[in-house]
Design a protein around this nucleic acid. Structure first.
Lengths: 190, 190
DNA sequence: GCAATGTGTGATTGGTCACTCACTACCGGG
DNA sequence: CCCGGTAGTGAGTGACCAATCACACATTGC
């Protein structure tokens, strides 16, 4: 299998799997779990649909893996933001919140996959597992990096969820009272 | 059309439409917009699939109407809770938060429809419209009844969104640190 | 050189689903 | 009594989609 020349980290199949996953992210992000056809995903990855099913035996497994990718992107963002904040002597929790806001604008796919995973979790056990892992890792990281109490953490996560929903319905593009109040960066008091 | 005997509030077609809507709520709640077949909805309502499409020309329109129903159920709950709180001299905002928690346990469908609507809003303009209306009405009502500032309102809605997500992934049934912290009733400090 | 193993595909298949059409049954008014 | 409109349906239709299968091409160890 692995050739004698020791340093071979990925077999080509694993490489393909990784590529497929990356290509699947935007497709699932745009159309959701049910509405995204495996054909479109395979095409985006530049492989045949048949081979997609060899790399991931079911669509649910593929989607669960994509959920994991989105989770990892968030984790990486938070880790980095916290490190930078600590170096600058700023509040890590606030920095991570800021970083999440930026991430939502920069990498819309992460948000959308997150959202789609939440609903798909209701019906597909594999996806529910992936989502729970996602929250567990996120909570652990944010708690450790920030040192905040559970009450602050709850409020922090709650704010993140509100950001998700507001982004999903495009509230940031609206000029109505409720939309400005709920998307606002918790600054203005009235 | 309407017969001479003045007081005829609903034509039978409107009646059927209302019945269909009520029947559609649990089906959409359980399976989501894409995965819920119109056939199953029609069966639940006791009508033929063909007639369903006469009452609502497209599936998206039907789902948008269901979103509206969920919205109305929430509005009614909040109105009632606020009235009771005001009568008892309690804080209306807190009472409405409590009422939302109760509603999520009593009427799971409302939560699930809410969640499914959020994601479907990304792709279906009709559903996006319905969701925006939902948030507008909700925000207006809660703001009026509570008299709270926009910052408190934002936090209140954020907490509601977190409740939704935690319920969706069944976090309340887990015995892990993160799950207890994020589903907790903002009481315990550590 | 050749078997074995792994990478990759085209064609299909069985099933489902939104939506349509042609049609029947009823009901109130003239 | 019949006529127009409304309630209601059975039987499709075309499109799409997850998953399968049989088969080809490359690489490698022997």
């Amino acid at each position: 299998m692995t050739p004698a020349t020791a340093t071979r980290t990925l077999s080509t199949a694993e490489q393909r799997r990784a590529e497929l996953l990356e290509a699947a992210v935007p497709v699932f992000a745009e159309r959701g779990y049910h509405a995204a056809p495996t054909m479109a995903i395979a095409k985006a990855a530049g492989i045949s649909q048949a081979y997609l099913f060899r790399l991931f035996p079911t669509k649910a497994e593929l989607f669960a893996a994509v959920t994991g990718i989105a989770s990892e992107r968030m984790l990486a963002t938070f880790r980095e933001a916290a490190a930078r904040a600590r170096a600058a002597g700023a509040d890590p929790l606030e920095a991570m919140g800021q970083a999440y806001g930026d991430l939502l604008e920069r990498d819309r796919d992460v948000l959308l996959v997150q959202l789609h995973s939440q609903v798909a979790a209701g019906a597909e056990p594999l996806i529910r597992e992936a989502m729970r892992r996602c929250f567990r890792d996120l909570y652990e990281l944010v708690a450790r990096e920030s040192g905040a109490g559970s009450q602050d953490l709850q409020a922090w996560f709650a704010h993140g969820m509100l950001c998700n929903v507001m982004a999903a319905i495009g509230a940031d593009a609206l000029d109505e009272t409720w939309a400005r109040a709920l998307t606002g960066e918790e600054g203005e008091t009235e």
